[in-house]
């Protein structure tokens, strides 16, 4: 699909991203040596798995140029629903399937309301999310659910390791790989992107744009369910505020990744969420109170998007021009030899 020139440009951005990650890791490593310990890195991997799944779902919605602000509400309701089912003694696999199905239904409601009936996306998802937040209380009136959690096996999702890496990380990698294949290597992916780029032209090209918009919301809600499942696994209880901290990192990951990589994609979201999770965990390790985390993430998001915007690039180039007025022509060393 691409020329080598394109690839170069792409990989330059990718390399820049890797460099940024290494620099952030090095800074935290110097300020707080525990940051690079095995325990801390494992924690980052676990948190990244949950944040990353939410970001992946959001990626689909952002590709069709919509917003989903129901992530927190969907997460809360599905967390309590799955907790209630675990407490009721359902086997773990059926709990996960039920949770995914519930997520799909909620995402479908938002998606169809927005695509089929033309409701505004932001208002609709705020409403659906708020309903979810409210419904999360119907099982216990707000008390946490923990019965059967340790016998159900859900905590293995957090604790079990495969080849030194937590299973949650494997889950993340597997689902990202699948999403990458679908979005960049199949006609479904092209249709998703076309729907976002120009819905009218996509419609005239025979693409069922409404279906892809609705599908994006369904996928977003299902990914959110998987993300909150990992949070349940880590904490060992279901509480109504579980998932409240999923939304901001997800948005930050998707938009920061897109800003750095020059477009929304699965790979961009992966990089974005890695960076965000490192920053979040790093600050937590350094003793930043948890209630600042959303603020910090949002601040990083703004700085990141600004720094990589076209306007900033122009300023940067102007600065470069100031310091290196001409393209550095190598001084002719040979002349002095002669």
């Amino acid at each position: 699909m691409r020329t080598w020139k394109d690839r170069m440009r792409h990989s330059t951005r990718g390399l820049g991203f890797v460099a940024l990650v290494l620099i952030v890791a090095a800074i935290f490593g110097v300020l707080e040596p525990r940051f690079l310990s095995y325990v801390s890195l494992n924690g980052i991997a676990r948190h990244m798995a949950a944040n990353g799944l939410a970001a992946l779902g959001l990626t689909f919605v952002v590709i069709v140029r919509k917003f989903d602000l129901s992530i927190a509400g969907v997460a809360a309701f599905c967390a309590m629903s799955m907790g209630a089912l675990i407490a009721a003694g359902w086997p773990l696999w059926s709990v996960i399937l039920a949770g995914l199905a519930l997520g799909a239904v909620i995402g479908g409601i938002s998606g169809i309301a927005i695509s089929r009936f033309g409701l505004p996306d932001i208002v609709t998802t705020i409403a659906v999310g708020s309903i979810g937040t409210g419904l999360a209380f119907i099982y216990t009136g707000g008390r946490s659910i923990f019965q059967n959690f340790f016998t159900s096996g859900i905590t293995d999702l957090n604790d079990a390791k495969l080849m030194g890496l937590g299973v949650s990380m494997w889950l993340l990698v597997a689902i990202y790989a699948l999403a990458w294949f679908v979005l960049s290597r199949t006609r479904t992916g092209l249709a998703f992107y076309a729907t976002g780029e120009n819905p009218m032209a996509a419609h005239f090209s025979g693409i069922a744009t409404r279906r892809f918009v609705a599908l994006a919301y369904v996928l977003c809600a299902m990914c959110t369910v998987l993300a909150v499942l990992l949070i349940l696994a880590e904490s060992g209880t279901a509480e109504t505020n579980k998932g409240a901290n999923l939304m901001m990192p997800a948005y930050a990951g998707v938009f920061l990744g897109a800003a750095i990589m020059g477009g929304t994609s699965v790979i961009a979201s992966f990089g974005g969420i890695l960076l965000i999770t490192m920053l979040l965990d790093g600050f937590a390790l350094m003793g930043l109170p948890y209630y600042y985390s959303d603020g910090v993430v949002s601040l990083i998001l703004l700085i990141g998007v600004l720094a990589f915007s076209d306007g900033a690039r122009g300023t940067l180039q102007a600065l470069r021009f100031l310091f290196w007025p001409q393209k550095s022509t190598k001084p002719t060393a040979k002349g002095s030899d002669a």
Binding site: A194, E197, F204
Partner: peptide, 19 residues
């Protein structure tokens, strides 16, 4: 508005009607 995704290149636009 009806024919092209303007911010995308030909490789994206040309196959759109026959994926």
């Amino acid at each position: 508005t009806e024919g092209l995704a303007l911010s995308r290149h030909s490789l994206f636009n040309v196959p759109m009607a026959n994926l």
